[in-house]
Simulated scan of single mutants.
Amino acid sequence: MTPSHDHGHDHDHGAHDHSHVPDVGAGNEKRMAVAAALTGLFMLVEAGGGLVAGSLALLADAGHMLTDFAALLLAWFAFRVARRPADWKRTYGFDRFSVLVAFVNGIGLFVIAAVIAVEAVQRFRNPVPVLGDTMLVIAVAGLLVNLLSFWVLHGADKDNLNVRGAALHVLGDLLGSVAAIAAAVVILLTGWMPIDPLLSVLVVLLILRSAWYVVKESGRILLEAAPRGFDTRAVAADLVALEGIEDVHHLHAWSITEKRRMMTLHARIEPGSDGARNPERITAAIKARLKDRFGIAHATVEIEHDDCADAGDCGEATARRQEPATTA
């Protein structure tokens, strides 16, 4: 009689927690709130100074800081929402809300960059007088505020996508302040006004760099791609090396957030092996291997004894044990 399929989704309760309560650091939330307050307050000062001085570089940096202020506020709000536990409708909880926020922030950066670039072109065609001394004072103050904000975020969780994105935003502001200082010095020494829109273009490039990073990383998670640096083919081949496993297929890996990696897979057991008699043992071995070598703390493993239950759809990440060749 052919052994029956064991298609239960076995979980090793000692390997991870099934409550799906998010691990959201209160320190991240507080640091984000402080950085948002610093950025928002100085954004108003810089925007007013840019209007008084007639400096596009200051206005460009203020526009960048406006986006950063919104990004930091949303990131703070995302940490608040992520505190909520999972329920029957949202079984993974609210952690991915922070990833969605990061994606929206990144798209917003592209919009701000486009607005600044258009204004810079207009300034090149029709130069506007700039008050270099006023511009210099405000730019120096902005540099100090950005240094303080960057220091606040430096102590947060660097593996968190929102934190990393926020730090990049603040770093862009910091470099934007440096550009504004340079423009003010050139104007005071030479009176060459085109340096102001020229350096505002540099700020645009900084914005675009930050935007691309945030959109790319958050988009990867939202599209449920395999985690960065994670090769499902290599994982399948590694698991086949475990004793008693004949074949690994239907392997899928994705992330809820950058720190919460997930996986599902089918493992076919060799007939007559210890794993065939004790599927719980082989399931525990697979889970331990995934956690120790690949950082997967939550995996759903389906044990099979003969053909794949999902015939004709066994996934691309497939590995089969290679038996040594025999000679007649």
Rank of each mutant, 00 (worst) to 15 (best):
R80G: 05
A117N: 10
G142Y: 05
L171M: 11
F124K: 12
M65P: 08
D87P: 11
N105P: 14
G132N: 02
D68I: 09
L131K: 11
G155N: 08
F79L: 15
A183L: 01
I181K: 03
V137F: 10
A113H: 07
D133W: 10
I138R: 04
G165I: 04
V186R: 03
K89C: 11
V137R: 07
V128Y: 12
A75V: 11
D95K: 14
I187C: 00
A102C: 12
L73E: 01
I138P: 04
W88N: 13
N126K: 14
Y92V: 08
L168V: 06
F103P: 08
A78N: 09
Y92E: 07
A180S: 04
M135Y: 03
G108I: 06
I112R: 14
R84L: 14
A113T: 08
R96F: 02
V140W: 00
L174D: 02
D159F: 05
F94K: 09
A114S: 14
I116T: 06
W88G: 12
A70Q: 08
R164G: 02
F79I: 06
T67L: 15
V186H: 04
L147H: 02
V163G: 06
V121I: 15
F150C: 09
L131M: 09
D87E: 08
A183R: 02
V81A: 13
I116E: 06
A70T: 09
V115N: 10
W76D: 07
L148V: 11
I181A: 04
G142I: 02
F150G: 13
W76R: 13
L171N: 01
V115E: 13
P129T: 02
A183W: 00
R123G: 01
F77T: 09
V178T: 00
L73H: 06
R125S: 13
A70P: 09
A114F: 15
V121A: 13
I138F: 07
L143P: 02
A82S: 15
V115G: 05
L66T: 13
G108S: 07
F124H: 10
A184D: 03
F69Y: 14
